[in-house]
Design a protein around this nucleic acid. Structure first.
Length: 442
DNA sequence: GCACGAAGGACCC
DNA sequence: GCCCAGGGTCCTTCGTTG
């Protein structure tokens, strides 16, 4: 009962702070004076309608937690043991179906809107800027993040945190154009890649990797745009090649101090061998190549994650932001090592509510999520606890599904030949098999 | 009691 | 001085209906 009261009473401050206060989950936001920032945010927000609403929502979450804790008190040792057996049986099945054969890449453009605006207006480069309006910001650059300014923060509060912040209005038309340029590159590596908004995408490069093994060097050679960019970029490429360690690898951060690649004289572009770089055949090399090409084409940097499934790839791309990449090797142990001390809040799909509910059960990291699997199966809905189990085992989807594709036949205009029909049937059967497996043959 | 769909919440960008 | 978006997916809950 004691901890229950704690949840209820401490919530007034902590809970609302958790809701409204700085979320330093984002890249470029570590080691800030959180207390000072939170004080400014709270002072600016207190008494507003928004604040009252957040207070109400926080109380609702507390009630949910209280209910959950009451339920937990009633669970007997026997029930828990039984649940443990059942869940562990499922764990064995899930382990057997673990698929490490796909190479999934998550590409994430660094501070996308802000980076585009900085590129197009060099005056903004050294300043803290955010893109959006006084009422809502969509993103901020890394200078601004040092002040605690981040996406989904109202501009007027950001101005209090950083009085000399420049707020640039949104220009979706421009971002759409840049996004298209990036997609043109991505489609060469996976024609079925899955864009997520303007600044993110998932690719399945499994097939590309196979084909690439037989490619001559020239097909893997790319040219630098200008002289000025050459030396530095070459160094960066070489350095990143050396930065491989254990299960995952990192490339150095070169965002803040990176000179932009100005393509002032394309006609003078030197396309000699010295001005080129050859990428290897590994997944890391492919992703370095993609990021290199994106930067050469758009003057913008991207971060990337390489892993056996989409969930891991996404978390991985977050590891070494900005302008970095990270790989989880396709081995069970590498996956589990990556997850070991990872806070559950880093997992896509776990937001502040779920975080708070799990924290009340003493669960903060993914390994704790695994340790409490039996309890979770008794407290949460089937789909929730199964999702928790997938997360703690590092399981996720290994094939990409494009919106609308497969789900509806009417949009398929290219089913002409018998071969098309055969292929479609095969795909549908494979999907059905996967879904049945997912549903445990319900 | 079940199936179904609407409504609302959590989460994402 | 301005005073916390909008659009999407997925899941849960709840009311309606036969």
């Amino acid at each position: 009962m004691d901890h229950m009261k704690k949840v209820g009473s401490s919530s007034c401050n902590d809970g609302v702070l958790l809701r409204m206060g700085l979320n330093d989950n984002k890249a470029g936001m570590q080691g800030l004076d959180k207390e000072k920032i939170n004080k400014i945010i709270m002072e600016a927000t207190k008494g507003s309608r928004f604040y009252e609403n957040e207070l109400k929502k926080d109380q609702q979450v507390n009630q949910r937690i209280e209910k959950m804790m009451q339920l937990k008190e009633k669970i007997t040792t026997q029930q828990l043991l039984k649940a443990q057996l059942q869940v562990d049986k499922l764990v064995i099945e899930l382990e057997q179906s673990r698929n490490l054969s796909s190479t999934i890449v998550h590409i994430d453009m660094d501070a996308f809107y802000a980076a585009v605006e900085m590129r197009d207006n060099p005056e903004l480069k050294e300043k803290p800027i955010a893109v959006g309006s006084m009422s809502m910001l969509s993103t901020s650059n890394y200078h601004a993040r040092r002040f605690g300014v981040r996406a989904a923060m109202p501009g007027f509060i950001a101005k209090k945190l950083c009085p000399h912040l420049t707020i640039v209005p949104l220009n979706f038309e421009k971002y759409g154009k840049v996004s298209k340029e990036v997609r043109e590159i991505l489609t060469e590596y996976d024609p079925n890649f899955m864009p997520m908004g303007l600044d993110e995408a998932y690719l399945n490069i499994t097939e590309h990797l196979e084909e690439r093994l037989n490619w001559p060097e020239d097909k893997r050679r790319f040219f630098f745009n200008t002289e000025s960019a050459t030396e530095k970029d070459k160094d960066d490429i070489n350095m990143s090649a050396k930065c491989n360690e254990g299960g995952y690898s990192f490339s150095p951060v070169l965002f803040e101090d990176n000179t932009p690649l100005m393509d002032d004289h394309p006609e003078q572009r030197d396309r000699s061998v010295e001005n080129s770089v050859i990428f290897g055949t590994s997944a890391e090399e492919v992703v370095k190549e993609i990021r290199f090409r994106i930067e050469q084409k758009t003057q913008l940097t991207a971060s990337a994650g390489i892993a056996p499934n989409t969930m891991l790839a996404k978390m991985c791309s977050d590891r070494n932001k900005p302008n970095g990449q990270c790989r989880i090797a396709p081995e069970r142990q590498a996956v589990l090592d990556f997850l070991k001390d990872l806070p559950i809040r880093k997992v896509p799909g776990i937001g502040k509510v779920t975080e708070k509910m799990l924290k009340a059960l003493g669960i903060v990291t993914c390994s704790e999520l695994y340790q409490q699997r039996a309890l979770l199966s008794l407290l949460f809905s089937e789909s929730s606890w199964r999702n928790f189990l997938d997360i703690s085992l590092g399981l996720g989807s290994t094939h990409l599904e494009k919106d609308g594709e497969r789900k509806s036949m009417s949009t398929e205009s290219e089913i002409n030949t018998a071969e098309d029909q055969y292929n479609l049937c095969r795909e549908l059967c494979r999907d059905l098999a996967q879904e049945l497996q997912k549903e445990r043959l319900k």
